[in-house]
């Protein structure tokens, strides 16, 4: 019953949202805006709380079992500390909340992001071998793009920026557009399958 009801609600909301897009009536615009800005955001926010509670439960369970207890306690301290300092001192400028964000979260996040530069470079060093024509094209394209924004461009090859821009704007754009069209067609058919009830994996298991 629950699955059938959920499917019916899904189909109704799907058809309504689809039809609202084509209606120029202000009331239709308001309803569409209400669903996208209020319903979606509020449900997302509640889902985030459920996710955080689930994270808390999994970590507490693993701490009780003695699996990576020390590290998990650090995670939980971080999780509890942010809302706690936000409740006590607020989230404005020069608050402990912003201090943790600026001096702990931002450096950690950007360094993890920067760390990938080494792994990408190392993977390319091992993987970039011009063994076939497609591999050679990949290599040339990447090298031209990389060199166009380096000191080589100014010193030895003055046309590199123009070549790199042409690659990005035309042959690369052609493949990018084909991929976008593919994504669009895929999303379109998946949406239709969800609305008519062929695609039901989102319902999960159980009754």
């Amino acid at each position: 019953m629950s699955r059938r009801l959920a499917q019916i609600i899904c189909a109704i909301f799907g058809v309504v949202m689809f039809l609202l897009f084509f209606s120029p009536h202000p009331a239709a615009r308001t309803i569409a805006l209400t669903i996208t800005t209020e319903y979606w955001q509020v449900i997302y926010a509640f889902a985030l709380i459920v996710g955080a509670v689930s994270f808390l439960r999994v970590n507490v369970k693993n701490i009780q079992r003695g699996q990576d207890s020390g590290y998990r306690i650090i995670s939980l301290i971080g999780l509890v500390a942010m809302p706690t300092v936000a409740i006590i001192w607020g989230i404005g400028a020069n608050t402990p909340f912003m201090w943790i964000f600026e001096n702990i979260q931002v450096p950690l996040q950007s360094t993890v992001f920067a760390l990938l530069a080494f792994f990408v470079a190392s993977a390319s060093f091992r993987g970039f071998r011009a063994r076939s024509l497609p591999a050679a094209i990949l290599l040339i394209s990447a090298v031209v793009i990389l060199l166009s924004r380096s000191w080589v461009e100014g010193q030895f090859a003055s046309g590199l920026i123009a070549t790199a821009d042409w690659i990005r704007s035309y042959p690369s754009m052609a493949a990018r557009r084909a991929i976008l069209i593919g994504i669009g067609l895929g999303s379109l058919t998946t949406s239709l399958r969800v609305i008519v009830g062929i695609e039901r994996t989102w319902l999960g298991g159980g009754r």
Binding site: S2, R3, L5, A6, Q7, I9, C10, A11, I12, F13, G14, V15, V16, M17, F18, L19, L20, F21, F22, A32, I35, T36, Y39, W40, I43, Y44, F46, L180, I181, I183, G184, L185, S187, L188, T190, S191, L192, V194, I195, W202, L203, G204, G206, R207
Partner: peptide, 27 residues
């Protein structure tokens, strides 16, 4: 099973909004 209702609203309205959104800019 009750949690399927908000998911149905989210997924259904998302799918309905995605059709014209994909058809226009993506295709």
């Amino acid at each position: 099973p009750l949690s399927r209702i908000p998911l149905a609203v989210l997924i259904g309205s998302g799918a309905g909004a995605a059709i014209p959104a994909m058809l226009g800019p993506r295709i």
